[in-house]
Design a protein around this nucleic acid. Sequence first.
RNA 1: GGCUCAAUAGCUCAGUCGGUAGAGUAGGGGACUCAUAAGCCCUUGGUCGUCAGUUCAAGUCUGACUUGAGCCA
Length: 549
Amino acid sequence: MNHSTNTQQSFTVTTPLYYVNDIPHIGHAYTTMAADTIARWHRLKQHNVLLITGTDEHGQKIERTAVAAGVAPQVHCDRIVERFDALWSKLDIQYDRFSRTTAPNHQLIVNEFFRRVWDRGDIYKGTQQGWYCVSCEEFKEERDLLADKHCPLHPSKQVEWRDESNYFFRLSKYQQPLEALYAEHPNFILPTSRRNEVLKFVAQGLQDFSISRVNVNWGIPLPTDPQQTIYVWFDALLGYMTALLDPDVEPTLDNALQRWPINLHLIGKDILRFHAVYWPAMLMSAGLPLPERVFAHGYFTKDGKKISKSEGNAIDPIALVDRYGAEPLRYYFLKEIEFGQDGDFNESRFVEIVNADLANSLGNLINRTLNMSKKYCQGRVPNCNAEDISPDNPLKILGQKLGAEVDTAYNKLAFRDVCEAILTLVRSSNKYIDDLAPWTLFKQEKHSELAQVLYAVLESARLSAYLLSPIVPKISTDIYHQLGFDLDFDIVTGNHISTNLNKSELPVDGASAVENWEHHLEWGVLTANHLLGEPRPIFTKLEIASITN
RNA sequence: GGCUCAAUAGCUCAGUCGGUAGAGUAGGGGACUCAUAAGCCCUUGGUCGUCAGUUCAAGUCUGACUUGAGCCA
């Protein structure tokens, strides 16, 4: 069903499995857009890619939310999952696996994994008493509580006294191995500021943590003690592993591990500790290889202000996409917000940036060049090839090194650098046109020079569209069509493995369309006299609508 | 209270090994005409958060402080 070969490089990336307590917000969309983009980049390079997203559905908070809504927990989860999937579809996110922690397969994986850790002697029964916040699903220190026993993170909720006999994971045992891991793999946690936080946290000393709950029915029963259920985080992290199961294989840990380990966990900074400390320790205990990298991105402010429910300034991703479309949003969030740092969403700035880059710089470049090709060269690539362009040509010089530069940037998840590098070629192309004035060359009947100028620009525009396709696949596809290629980046860089959640199957010839486009990474792909498409604006300027406030 | 990171043009950010600050965007002006009034050229705009210190020389190194974001299970 997939076309992986032994020699093919594989790349597995995850978003968090989002907690279904609430409908998707802009933060979920952001992580997932980034994950989709990096997945598309690897697919463009013909890697065997698996983009995993999904939902974390257990825990007391979900149980209570469902009860409050008057539905069974599973019904509640199903409803929220639909909302997530609808958003991913709107944002043109093509995941390969949607992992739900309530999936039957998942329980089998959790049981097996639990057994491994149990057999290692890393789970023991102990008692835990203290103030418990259901919203956090965590015990709190009394000194951290607000007045009247309210949780500092959930000021409207009172904590509850618990005196439980729970099962604990021996995290303390893994302090040294974890420190060794961080030292040997300095890029395991990125960005560096987040890594520092984890280092400090671990250096303080690690305490065992409880991995089971009593009185929580909505969860996976402990294999060794069905009176208790498995703590949501222990359960949720393993969802990454369940996701690796091909739909048609027996759900065993060994089968899931065929594709282990994960290359990249993309997360929000709020869940760093679970991914950078607990998770590797759990895997060490189970004797499994560790993920290559955990990357924690930042949060948003809205017009410089913190987003909060009480402020009522939440950004609804659905409303945004409906108003502006997916591509401008993908572009803005990835280009304008430094990945890894906090950023701001400001609607007028969003419109400004997207219009300046996509309509004015890139869109107009394509449009003016195609129009000139139409007028001066009968709507074809001029009668010359890349070899005919002088090595001194400024666009050729930039174009020849751009692929490698952009590759480096994508691999660092430096989406901003990706866009800036491409924009440098785009801007240079616009300048080059003005400097060489093809309309004058035409009047002077300098056909050879004219051909070289138009070739250099067309080719630069093509390369720009290609390299930008993981971020704006539809715009890139449109540009490619206008350049006379029958290529759909949603097929080339989209997922070609059917997902396990009612996704309509891609056309059968979709996979065969995945021929080798990899050489398009080079400058000089267009061939002489190649027939171009009809020029029409690839991006219509946005107008501000102020829908978010 | 302890710790981490950040602070540079109206806005978003670069700035390497210390050598008197750059880009994009926004604002102002100009020449051009292939083009989505787009693009191109010129230009306004900064005592680089504050105060000290080291140095011939500090955006850059050191210390303190201010503000913001975050971590301390």
